[in-house]
Design a protein around this nucleic acid. Sequence first.
DNA 1: TTGACATGAAAAACCGTTTTAGCTAATGTG
DNA 2: CACATTAGCTAAAACGGTTTTTCATGTCAA
Lengths: 341, 341
Amino acid sequence: MGRVGIRDVAKAAQVSVTTVSHALNDRRGSRISAATKEHVRAVAEDLGYAPNRLASGLRNNRSYLIGLVSDEIATTPFAGDMILGAQDAAYERGCLLMMLDAGGDGELEKRQVSTLLQHQVDGIVYARMYHQRIGLPVELAGVPTVLLDAVSADEKVSSVIPDEVEAARLAVRSLVAAGHRHIGFINNLDDIPATHGRLLGYQEALKESGIEFDPALVVAGVPETNGGRAAAMDVLSGPSRPTALFCFNDQMAMGAYQAAGSLGLEIPRDLSVIGIDNLELIAAALWPGLTTMALPHYDMGRWAVKQLLNEIEKPDDVEPVQMMFDCPLVQRGSVAPPLQI
Amino acid sequence: MGRVGIRDVAKAAQVSVTTVSHALNDRRGSRISAATKEHVRAVAEDLGYAPNRLASGLRNNRSYLIGLVSDEIATTPFAGDMILGAQDAAYERGCLLMMLDAGGDGELEKRQVSTLLQHQVDGIVYARMYHQRIGLPVELAGVPTVLLDAVSADEKVSSVIPDEVEAARLAVRSLVAAGHRHIGFINNLDDIPATHGRLLGYQEALKESGIEFDPALVVAGVPETNGGRAAAMDVLSGPSRPTALFCFNDQMAMGAYQAAGSLGLEIPRDLSVIGIDNLELIAAALWPGLTTMALPHYDMGRWAVKQLLNEIEKPDDVEPVQMMFDCPLVQRGSVAPPLQI
DNA sequence: TTGACATGAAAAACCGTTTTAGCTAATGTG
DNA sequence: CACATTAGCTAAAACGGTTTTTCATGTCAA
């Protein structure tokens, strides 16, 4: 049983391949009677005909493939939803996603990009695992590209990132709303946009509530459980212990849980904790569940592909867009009013 | 700058397109002088020529694309390494992976498979997030297919799964080796191969060490932190408290940590814990780090694609293989000798 | 000298579509 | 009734490569 092609349909329907093509794809200027069209479609359906995308792509100069190049999204749990969002958006518009993950190897990534181009992808989503500022690879010059969770100095390319400042502001506001006025911030010590953005949001939220910013309440560490534990240990054993901790991410928040545990502090009775990421695996697994700000990975992935397809489909009248998404608060059980002394 | 095609190379090298093709792809029967070949290759390199895979695929009936259909691998952290392994293996053999994740929606999955086939994928890796027994979708009949982390009743298709029994045996053996003879098993209550395989391994390891199997030491729960916590609570508050717990997975092990914490038991001094999965995000984040059995996801993904490509390349003389991979022990800090009383 | 054979390169066919350019018959127009 | 228009369809030419076939030489042995 060889694949059924357009010729087979033509033969079965007793018409020419041209007519079959016209009957199946309505297109401006294809004059064909309704009866013939219906007949051909029925025959095609009957034979289970499905067009060969390689062939039509060759003719149309359109592969309906879009490439997703990432550093290590596929293999880490931090941003997997971006892939799902991207894939859904692509699929809805009749495209397939080709995903490649170079694991951070720049040389490999270059080769991967050129392989994608050999396969005539219509465009490329260039994604990073976490929000960062990057330079666009030269290979991508002239190729429709959208940056996902990254921004470039090059303004001619669209990009989408989370609103770090607003996320932090909302997180701290929710602690203030619960009654806290003594709020520590466990920050990341890496020099990345999130570090600065979240610190800014923390400061702004304090300011708008009339709480004075106390540098002693801000401690940084490596953005993992260990770093969070050490930093939390630090700030919780200090002279003026905060009643709540805003943590750079859920992993550091998990570290804060551990520190609280070893200091005999019960969450949320003695200490409220809020994180960022909404990493299901951690936030839901902690006990009590971790209240945290969800990074809108799914929506960002979706938006990136949608924007890319728009740019591909009308290359002329689409301007590059720099998009920012809000981060919703996900409440679990780690925030409560402070103990009255 | 239009893409440079084989015609451009031919013109620049002052030869025919035929000669260029022959020069670039060594093939039996293509008679061409070494000098011409070298010359053409140099010119092609110089022009940055890269063949259009769509066009060559059309002619050769080979797309160098392989599809990966999964339930929710891309979006959960449990098996991401399978993708990486599959992708690496594909890339090494000059192929690209097209990954689709239906999120468990069977109807969507069907349509995804047919879309992949429209794109003329050379074969499909049908992957599940965790080891399960499945029926192969009818759409895949006649398409080269390999099952990843799944087995089918249909013996004509290759598959690869982890050796559940051996993994459990090794885990329990390592506890016995540390001196434990009173070992609890926190099992999953779902009726899946891992549940039965791991229980069997647990029993076998006990038997070979002359330890009598005590059904009271086996407790099941939902395979998440909560389930693990409840089950551990149960068995640790029972009449004869075990000195070590073998947990169905790392999440349940995390629950065991929480139970131990609330019972005032220190790990590993008062209680040794071993898990399965080597879920970095949890195992390394726990304090102390969790000793666990790593599921060989990367290797399984790699093997699946390798086998698939073998079957594609020589469709005749390759027999379907049912492969099982061992699970290595990853030692961290949660196992120690039991306290002497 | 000539037929057999080896070699290198060009020409042509092909893959499965879509698009362009015609062709024929029916319809409309003056 | 002659002539343009148009509806409905189809043959043929792309698309960008690879593979097969053909052709022009050169070499060698009989």
